[in-house]
């Protein structure tokens, strides 16, 4: 009985830890992005609230909370209200299977640094992350606005064209690690990360992850310049904030996934594992920001072409080649 209570307390502790860290990171990622983007465009970015603008996330939250929570007339009210939640929650849910450190020994107990070590972690991630697009689509549909609807439709078709390659680019990883569990995948990269073993899969996965995060160059559902704000045109206040935070939580989560699948997770010399993990995630996020500063938005048909005509065949061939090589090596 007490054994179970301790396990439960441990899981709860880990949950709170992850929740806190991810939300904190998401809040400061917004600031970091605005600052880095500013510097890359020869501006300063936010620097008024607190020293170096470090209190900016707090100011943003206060602002968002005090804004009117507006629901357009003739909007589909219930869908409109829950859509932002779907985006944020699904992003958070993925983190349940991400291992962020090796198993710890606390008071003689084995504590794995992951909320649940599912033996089908990869499938869980693929399933939950495709749910995230429902937030975009339902939000766009329920707003009863043409721009939002267009954004939602774009989100959906974008999902269809990259999700396949996303899954297929993970197949070589699974073949090399011989397991669907994320912990095992990290363990398999003890000596050499999969990014070096299979750079093609890494490239395809990274591009798909960019599309998954709805960021430039694949931010078609938002596309400020064409669609006002895309699927979140009609949202205001904290509901818009949820979409926004969801995007950045997603960034952290996808950064962690790139780390887990290809960068060797917490493995690394000298530094403690947790620091290595954090460092790698932040590096991927910095890469996201750098890409956003440097690239234009793809056109709608260009994205489709890229997804169906390049990424999909590439990942299929890659699976065959990886299979052949693995077979050859025995």
């Amino acid at each position: 009985m007490s054994e179970m209570l301790v396990t439960l307390a441990l899981i709860l502790g880990k949950l709170l830890f992850i929740f806190g860290v991810v939300l904190f990171m998401a809040a400061y990622l917004v600031l970091a992005e605005r600052k880095i983007l500013g510097r890359m465009q020869l501006r300063y970015g936010p620097n008024r609230v607190g020293p170096f603008g470090l209190m900016q996330p707090l100011a943003d939250v206060i602002k968002l909370l005090t804004k009117e929570d507006f629901v357009p007339a003739r909007a589909d009210k219930w869908l409109f209200l829950i859509a932002p939640g779907i985006t944020a929650v699904t992003a958070l849910l993925v983190f349940a299977v991400i291992p962020f450190g090796p198993t710890l020994e606390i008071f003689g107990r084995q504590v794995p640094l992951v909320v649940v070590d599912l033996n089908i972690g990869v499938l869980y991630f693929l399933g939950v992350s495709s749910m995230a697009v429902y937030g975009v689509v339902l939000g766009g549909w329920a707003s009863n606005s043409k721009y939002s609807l267009l954004g939602g439709v774009r989100g959906l078709s974008q999902m269809v064209s990259y999700e396949l390659s996303l899954g297929l680019s993970l197949v070589p990883v699974i073949m090399m690690a011989r397991s669907f569990s994320l912990t095992d995948i990290v363990m398999a990269q003890q000596s050499i990360p999969f990014m070096l073993l299979n750079p093609v899969a890494f490239g395809v996965f990274f591009i798909c992850v960019l599309a998954e995060s709805n960021r430039i160059p694949f931010d078609l559902p938002e596309a400020e310049n064409e669609l006002v704000g895309g699927f979140h045109t009609e949202y205001s206040g904290m509901r818009f904030g949820l979409f926004f935070v969801g995007e950045y939580i997603n960034m952290v989560v996808l950064g962690s996934l790139v780390t887990v699948f290809f960068l060797g997770g917490w493995h690394g010399p000298w530094l403690p594992p947790l620091l290595w993990f954090l460092f790698k995630v932040l590096a991927v996020c910095a890469m996201f920001i750098w890409i956003r500063a440097s690239m234009p938005r793809l056109r709608y048909d260009q994205l489709m072409n890229l997804g169906w005509k390049i990424l999909l065949p590439l990942s299929l061939v890659n699976i065959l080649v990886t299979g052949a090589v693995l077979l050859g090596l025995g």
Binding site: I36, R39, M40, Q41, L42, R43, Y44, W290, A293, S294
Partner: peptide
Amino acid sequence: PFWVTLRNMFRKPVTIQ
């Protein structure tokens, strides 16, 4: 573009505070 943005990052911003 990546090189351009990287170089800009280490330049002084033109903003007047």
